[in-house]
Design a protein around this nucleic acid. Structure first.
Length: 421
RNA sequence: GGAGAGGUGGCUGAGCGGCUGAAAGCGGCGGAUUGCUAAUCCGCUAUACAACCUAAAAAUUGUAUCGAGGGUUCGAAUCCCUCCCUCUCCGCCA
């Protein structure tokens, strides 16, 4: 959600945003509706003012004849008012629906592009492993080591189902525990949020109205969150912070549910694209200031880079092009890990900032030093997703005999074990 | 699942058809007093939108807002209906 005043004053920015994001949104439709809305609003408010004055006169009237006469007049006015009011309400409904579709304005540094293929690499890190043998893919490695069971996963859950077993499960816990310590040291407050959420939270983050197809719904009309971003952003909905209470850094840990509608046939094997997984997610609320948002954006993205570096997995960071930005995102970095068998990088993280796009919808505000209210800014980034990260981890750390070395930093979390064999 | 209570401003909490944007208290801001602190006293203190005026704002005016939506009425925080939410007790349950 953007400020309507901002839209009114900068329609060309919205037009450009829609173009860059390849959104079909037409500002001019909204502006037309806005004009009608303001006209109707003025008319209705004028009639209400008239009504309020008369109302007072009725209350104070000493002459019963005059009193009755005013009441009769107001009956007539009321009819006109009701009609106009209905017109206004109808317009407001259309107006709100359109307002939910307005794309946030991408940063100037966001490159143009048609799809994720046009994302631009801004950083590469690490030495890609040089194998003296033919490397295996994560499926083969993990199945041989009893770390995963896809067949039974499909039996129990169906398409894209999986069990993490034995050291596959242990390694997941090791990563979670390590991440918990790593991010706690960076002043993040760990949060285990509800994952069954009211739809309002999905509107808040900007996942709705756009991505209805991507969510599992309960029979009560709630949704299963696809990321902890959703409930953690809802955490402070309708609240007002004091400036001194910002920034808030949260590390959400939750299962994530994704229907992956529209991705049939994509990444059908293995742990890359699954319907449910776990993820640690960084969420930040900060003061409403572009520079502050940019600073935190770099911070949360860098956090994940550092985490990956400590695991010793080669990665690259890309800046997402316009077409690969969500409706609310101003700018986004993806971190992609090296997958040797596929000879490519695979996304494991997205760091984005939104300015006040989300907090406007969630109504999350703060009072500045002068006592003025502002919407906070919000940002979020993947801290680490499991099991997707296991794909790169086991493939990069595999040995000729089919065993997998455990990265030094994780060994204490695996009971001192140095390898999985 | 059964029974009951309730949702009012930054917070606590009164009000139960017109004089209530809303008492009182707390908190906050400004001022007085004070050797410092503490205490006391006085005043101010919601938000959104629109109009007007601006470079922008402030001020001013209007409208709305007492969980949400609808209804009754000339007029609703107050009466009626629907929904949502919270709490308490009982039951069930990891």
């Amino acid at each position: 959600m953007l400020d309507i005043k901002f839209i009114r004053e900068n329609p060309e920015l919205i037009r450009e945003a829609a173009r860059k994001k390849h959104s079909k949104f037409e500002v001019d439709d909204l502006l037309l509706l806005e004009e009608r809305r303001l006209d109707l609003l003025a008319e209705v408010e004028k009639m209400r003012a008239e009504q309020n004055i008369a109302s007072e006169n009725i209350a104070k009237a000493t002459d019963p004849v005059l009193r009755q006469q005013t009441i009769d007049e107001m009956k007539v006015l009321k009819e006109r008012l009701t009609k106009k009011d209905e017109e206004l309400k109808k317009t407001m409904e259309e107006w709100r629906a359109l307002m939910l579709l307005v794309p946030n304005v991408p940063d100037v540094s966001v490159p143009d592009g048609e799809s994720d293929k046009d994302n631009q690499s801004v950083k590469t890190w690490g030495e890609k492993p040089n194998f003296s043998f033919t490397p295996k893919d994560h499926i083969e490695i993990m199945e041989k080591l009893g770390m995963v069971d896809f067949e039974r996963g499909a039996k129990v859950h169906g398409f894209r189902g999986y069990f993490l077993t034995g050291d596959g499960a242990r390694l997941s816990f090791a990563i979670w525990n390590y991440a918990m310590n790593f991010f706690s040291a960076k002043k993040f407050t760990p949060v285990i949020p509800p994952v069954i959420v009211r739809k309002a939270n999905l509107y808040g983050t900007g996942h709705l109205p756009g991505d209805v197809e991507d969510y599992y719904m309960t029979q009560d009309g709630d949704a299963l969150a696809g990321t902890a971003e959703i409930p953690v952003m809802g955490l402070h909905a309708d609240e007002i912070f004091d400036e001194g209470q910002l920034p808030r850094r949260y590390l959400g840990f939750s299962p994530c549910f994704r229907r992956e509608a529209g991705s049939h046939g994509k990444d059908i094997k293995g742990l890359i694209r699954v319907h449910e997984f776990f993820k640690l997610e960084q969420v930040i609320l900060c003061e409403a200031n572009h520079e502050t948002s940019v600073r935190f954006h770099d911070e949360i993205n860098r956090n994940t880079e550092e985490f990956i570096e400590s695991l010793g997995i080669p990665y690259r960071t890309v800046i997402n092009c316009g077409a690969d930005l969500g409706q609310g995102q101003v700018k986004k970095y993806d971190i992609e890990l090296w997958v040797p068998k596929e000879n490519t990088y695979r996304e494991i993280s997205s760091a984005s900032y939104f300015h006040d796009f989300q907090t406007r919808r969630f109504n999350i505000r703060y009072r500045d030093g002068a006592g003025k209210l502002h919407y906070t800014h919000s940002l979020n980034s993947t801290a680490i997703p499991t099991p997707r990260v296991l794909v790169s981890l086991v493939e990069n750390y595999q040995d000729a005999d089919g065993s997998v070395r455990i990265p030094d930093i994780l060994q204490p979390y695996m009971g001192g074990k140095k390898q999985i064999a």
